[in-house]
Design a protein around this nucleic acid. Structure first.
Lengths: 120, 120
DNA sequence: CCTTGCCTTGACGCCGGTGTCAGGGCATAC
DNA sequence: GTATGCCCTGACACCGGCGTCAAGGCAAGG
C-alpha cells in the first residue's frame, strides 16, 4: 500500500502521514523506488494515532501507545507508560473542564443580567 | 501615567498594552515626547480587556465591549453587539464542554479497563 | 559628559498539526 | 515521446497573544 492509498483509507492526507513518520510514530518500509510501503498494521496504527490526537494528546504523548501496540498488546493504553500519559491527560482535561465551567457560568450570569435590564 | 506604570498596575507588560492599542482597543494620548499617556479610565479598560481575554474572547471580539464602555455604560456587556458576542462565545464554550466531557469519559473508561486487568 | 532607565518603532519567535507550493523522479498508458 | 498521476524532499504559512531583541531617543542624576 502506497502513502496515497493509506491516507485515503485512514481519512487523512499524505502530508499528515509523513509528519507522523518524521516524529517517530510510524516506520514504513521503502520500495526500491524510495516509495513508502505500508501494510494493514500501519493502517490500524494510524487509526489509533488519529483517535488519540482527537482526544487532545500531542504527538509526543502518543509514542508510548504506539510502542505498546508494537510490543504486541491488543490496545495501546494497557502499558504503564501509556497509562501514565492517560492519567496526566485526564487531569489536564479535568482542569480545562473546571476552567470552562467557570467561564460558562460567568457568561450566563452576564446574559441573565442583560435580560433583567430588558424587563425592569 | 506612562506605559510602564499602567502595565504594572494592570498586572501586565508594556508590550501587551501596545498590542491592544495596535488592535484598536485603547487610544492613549501622546506627550510632546511621543510617550503614551494614560489615565485611570484606561486602567479600568485594560482590566476589562484582560478579564475578557481570560474568558477566551479574541481581541476582535472585545471591541464591542470597549465601545460599549466608551459610550458611557457602566459595564461592557450591556450593549446589543456585546451581547451577541457573549451568546456566540457561550455556545462555543458549551461545545467545548461537550467535547471535553466525551474525551474525559473515554479516558476514564480506558483507565478503568486497566485497573480491571490488574485485578483479574 | 556619561550612565541609567524609561520610552519609541519594527520585526522575528513560539506552538503544533496540517495545508500547500516548489522542484524533481518514477510509472503507466497513449 | 509525452501526458498523466503518483511519489519524493524541503520549506514556508497558519493562528494569536505575547516575549524578546534591535537600534535608537529622551530625561534626570552623578
Amino acid at each position: 500500500m502506497l502513502i496515497g492509498e493509506l491516507a485515503e483509507r485512514a481519512g487523512t492526507s499524505p502530508r499528515t502521514l509523513r509528519y507522523y513518520e518524521e516524529h517517530g510514530l510510524i516506520h514504513p518500509r521503502r520500495d526500491a523506488n524510495g516509495y513508502r510501503q505500508y501494510d494493514d498494521g500501519e493502517l490500524r496504527l494510524v487509526h489509533e494515532i488519529r483517535s488519540l490526537l482527537a482526544d487532545g494528546f500531542g504527538v509526543d504523548d502518543i509514542k508510548p501507545f504506539v510502542a505498546c501496540l508494537r510490543a504486541g498488546n491488543s490496545a495501546g493504553h494497557v502499558c504503564p507508560d501509556s497509562a501514565a500519559v492517560l492519567r496526566r491527560r485526564l487531569a489536564e482535561v479535568d482542569g480545562y473542564l473546571d476552567q470552562l465551567t467557570v467561564v460558562r457560568d460567568r457568561l450566563r450570569s452576564q446574559l441573565e443580567e442583560i435580560k433583567c435590564q430588558m424587563n425592569p
